[in-house]
Design a binder for these strands. Structure first.
Lengths: 162, 162
DNA sequence: GGCTAATTTGCAAGCGGTGCAGATTAGGTG
DNA sequence: CACCTAATCTGCACCGCTTGCAAATTAGCC
């Protein structure tokens, strides 16, 4: 997502008004890596601007998404989250705390895909799941990690599972 | 998902009843690769068993999902779809018709993931997007395909984009 | 300062999904 | 085979998220 100042320019150039509500949301979203839900944004926005309408938050988020400045993400569990990172990236979602983490994969074209059946792939979105660093350290503190394998760092007995 | 006859055994073994409604859904789902929505299943089921309740369809699908016989999939656009294929697989969703297609990827562990930041990946789900064979042929019939690149079959000028 | 179209707001309503309670029924038992 | 009971089905009310609508407000141009 563009910085607030630039978004202001873009909005004005399109004949859209830059209201205080929108400016607030611009700043709340800029560089925000928490993948917030509408409710989370509304809660934060309400503290800084009491009386702001939930409807306005929805409206602005939808507008930004339509302009390509924001990505809507359906996280596991069904909740809708907003991601101001619109560069090519993927997500890692923690099975325990549910947090989404941005990750980058650059050798996507190395994947061998079977059963494509004529489908022409143009884009791929990967969602990794597992445990985030924070939850992982809590786990290892209490119970010894068994022979968990990371799918991105194959163990020596390659292909032994299943 | 197991075949209807086996599901019947499993249900009875768990003290669950095998009602006509459930049997119908077992057969509608078995080997079903259309990734149906609840509404689609309800529509089909209603034709074969008029009066069946939408509530029952939801109930049975949830039960099967909880038993691991069915996978719930949030397709792009937000609709919830059900997938009786519970083997390790991924999806390709057509940008035009929205259909989901099952695909298989076996060299996932070759991916180099940046910014993992201590996250321990255990599973990955990939959703490819692009055009399915059917929509692709409709397109090429009307307008010449420009220099579209498939991300799974890198073109010669590798790494030239972005 | 004034004008006008864009925006905000509150509320009603739509949609997908679930809780509940009464009616029904699968399937074990004698 | 009739009976019994817990599981299930059904219909309806309701919930959470999201959008439509219309009146009140306001950004931004003149």
């Amino acid at each position: 997502m563009l910085a607030p100042a630039e978004l202001t320019r873009v909005f004005r150039a399109r004949g859209l008004k830059v209201t205080p509500q929108r400016q607030l949301l611009f700043t709340l979203l800029h560089d925000n890596e928490t993948h917030p839900t509408v409710e989370a944004l509304f809660a934060t926005a309400s503290k800084m601007m009491p009386g702001i309408s939930l409807r306005t938050v929805y409206q602005t988020l939808n507008d930004l998404a339509a302009m390509g400045e924001l990505q809507m993400v359906q996280s596991a569990g069904g909740s809708t989250r907003f991601d101001p990172n619109v560069t090519e990236h993927h997500h890692a979602q923690c099975d325990r705390c549910g947090e989404l983490h941005d990750v980058y994969v650059d050798d996507l074209d190395r994947l061998r895909v079977r059963n494509l059946d004529g489908f022409q792939t143009e884009r791929a979105r990967i969602v990794f799941s597992g445990l985030c660093a924070a939850c992982l350290s809590k786990t290892t503190r209490t119970q010894k990690q068994s022979n968990k394998r990371s799918i991105t760092k194959p163990s020596s007995n390659k292909g032994a599972n299943k």
